[in-house]
Design a binder for these strands. Structure first.
Lengths: 342, 342
DNA sequence: TTGAAAGCGCTACCAA
DNA sequence: TTGGTAGCGCTTTCAA
């Protein structure tokens, strides 16, 4: 079939070992003269020899490939910058180190007997863990390095995590709204994200930030939208509806902005909206989106770099890396004027 | 180290073949009794046996993995929906068929002796080919199925291509602008995209659409921006500047909208802007972006599905799949009022 | 400085 | 209905 290392060896009149040594620098005890090496290289080029990476990986038990796992979304958002930022960070780190990146939305589900390590990956970058019993068990059992993003402290297996300071982020957002005069504020997520570890943490962080200002938001006043937020109309028509909403992500915020416009609700006049992530995307919305910021690309880059370090060092440590949040105030938040004057 | 198929076979008192047959259904001539099968399954679960996919792939010369190649961008845009749509289409198709997707921004560059097939992939989804001599040669030589997206007819190797009808798209855009009263129109790309096959085709299509209306745009009046379009200020201050711009992508359009706002140029009052792709993202810009539409996700889905079909059929055909473009008129285009009245 | 042998984990093929 | 043998392409280890 294809030219193998043995074909090259034969044609060059040397052993396969010599070829391997020359072309891949492998085999520490093997030594080849400069002349032989040059000859081998020439023959390889003549025969259009292409090393079989699969065979190498198999032999070395090392694929130089990282799996990108995100259990919860088989689709990525088309109207926000989150996934792009994540991927940019992960790609930069992997490609720098000559690794490849394979997308596995549901590795845990497809694994056998709860084992993640099927030989394809040297390590996993696991995003938005949901810590179902299966996935937590699998992660605990795995011998392969795993690093997590958006995995807050306090639950889940002991692996390195990269997470933003959700408490700080929500405190900034709530304080901003309170200073603008808002009293009735709610937090919005969706049924999907709410089952992730970070979903729970953000909700709790919102509640306690509210409490710090002597405000409350009952459990049943939190909002969980389905994908296209059809509940918006119902929500805004309620007599005692909130004057401000903090959203789980940019995507949620965008849906809200769009729906608000359709319904004739002005933002920020009738309703203030705060998003989460604050990518370049927030500059393009109408109005520009005020958002809690986290350095997603940097986090993904750091997480991936760390993962590769663990792989190469053949040992993992269980650190928790926390990134500060900011609040980028743009145009979607303001005083609750209209409501007061009515 | 890890439990192998032989460990399971030994523990169950059967041959490795029997285990392979039961757990993977492989080996057509092998038959195992229901009782033996049940026993094998139990033992495998007890031993927490995890099949080594790398070994299977190596043996079968089949990885069930598709490489996603995009030679030109090591980064993806964070402020448009293009890549997300592409990825959603590709992911849906691959995951449906139990394939994986590996991101390879520069497979062609890293290949040895111009050979793409290093054993890792069963096929390639190649986006935005640039047809450098090396890549064209590699593609021609490759025995592995390759399918291209955004590869217009007329140049490049004979592989199946999935492309939108650029001529139609640009005709729709130019006609729309002309009907609004515009006469001085330009097309904007960047140095990056202009080197891709589709970049050249869109420029040519723009020129001929202009010609159909008796309008011209000289080569030197076309715009090629660098990433952040810093030339914008210079461009808009020119006395005879265009009243409308058609952009290579949404991303370009967004940069233009943002820059225009900074410079106090009103859109569409002072300047009409048309983007390309028309993802959900266009609904979120300010003003909403008028854009030529192409069904990216569908195209990516179809291309990937076709690729998998070729892989499984072990033969490729060289079809050209063309998708109609539309024009989604939103708010970024209008009569060139301000200019006329000045 | 070079070569030979063995084997990574799995499955195709042939024999019983 | 089951098992044995061989080998995918490469590299590790040991011998020359």
């Amino acid at each position: 079939m294809a030219t193998t290392i043995r074909d090259v060896a034969e044609a060059a009149g040397v052993s396969a070992m010599a070829v391997s040594k020359v072309l891949h620098g492998t085999g520490s005890t093997v030594r080849v003269s400069a002349q032989t090496a040059a000859n081998i290289r020439r023959v390889a080029a003549d025969l259009r020899y292409q090393p079989n990476r699969l065979a190498r990986s198999f032999r070395q038990q090392k694929t130089n490939t990282i799996g990108l796992v995100f259990s919860h979304f088989g689709r990525i958002g088309e109207a926000d910058g989150y996934f792009a930022a994540l991927l940019n960070g992960a790609m930069t780190a992997t490609f720098q180190s000559e690794y490849s990146l394979t997308i596995c939305p549901k590795l845990a589900m497809s694994s056998t007997n709860g084992q993640l390590n099927d030989g394809r990956f040297d390590g996993l970058l696991w995003c938005k863990p949901d810590y179902t019993r299966e996935s937590a068990e699998s992660i605990g059992l795995s011998k392969m390095p795993i690093v997590m993003m958006h995995a807050p402290a306090g639950e889940g297996p002991e692996v390195p995590r990269f997470c933003c300071d959700n408490e700080q982020g929500l405190r900034l957002a709530v304080t901003h709204l309170v200073e603008l005069g808002h009293r009735k504020i709610t937090f919005l997520s969706d049924h999907f994200n709410h089952t992730t570890a970070e979903g729970r943490v953000r909700t709790a962080a919102f509640m306690s930030a509210m409490a710090e200002h002597g405000l409350t938001c009952r459990e049943d006043e939190l909002l969980y939208w389905s994908q296209e937020c059809d509940e918006m109309a119902e929500f805004v028509s309620a007599p005692d509806r909130p004057t401000a909403m903090i959203m789980f992500s940019e995507l949620h915020a965008v849906y809200a902005l769009r729906k608000a416009e359709q319904l004739g609700i002005s933002v920020p006049g009738d309703l203030s909206v705060i998003g989460y992530d604050s990518t370049a995307f927030c500059e393009t919305t109408r109005p520009r989106l005020t958002a809690i910021s986290q350095p997603i690309e940097q986090m993904a880059y750091d997480a991936t770099t760390k993962l590769i370090a663990y792989i190469e060092a053949e040992k993992t440590e269980s650190h928790f890396f926390i990134y500060p949040c900011g609040l980028d105030i743009r145009e979607s938040t303001g005083h609750p004027i209209h409501r007061e004057s009515k």
